[in-house]
Amino acid sequence: MSRRPVAIAVALLLLGILALDTGISAPLNPFAAPSPIALGSGQAAGGAHCAAPATR
C-alpha cells in the first residue's frame, strides 16, 4: 500500500474535526477579530499555550 490512502485518511480526519467544530462552536465573526498583529496592538495574548498552568 502506498502513502496516498494514509494521507487521504489524515486529510479526512482533519476536515471531520473542522466540520464537527463548526457545528458545536460559536459562529465566526471576523469583525470581532483581534488586530492582525499582536505586537503593538495593545491587546493581551490569549495564553492558550502548552506552557499554560492548570489554573489561571
Partner: peptide, 23 residues
C-alpha cells in the same frame, strides 16, 4: 509577533480532543 505567544503544538491537539469529548 502575530499571535502574542510562542510556537506551540500540544495545546491545540488537546483542544481537538476536548472538542470531541464535549460533542
Amino acid at each position: 509577533v502575530i499571535a502574542g505567544q510562542p510556537w506551540g503544538v500540544v495545546y491545540g491537539l488537546g483542544l481537538w480532543a476536548a472538542k470531541g469529548a464535549t460533542a
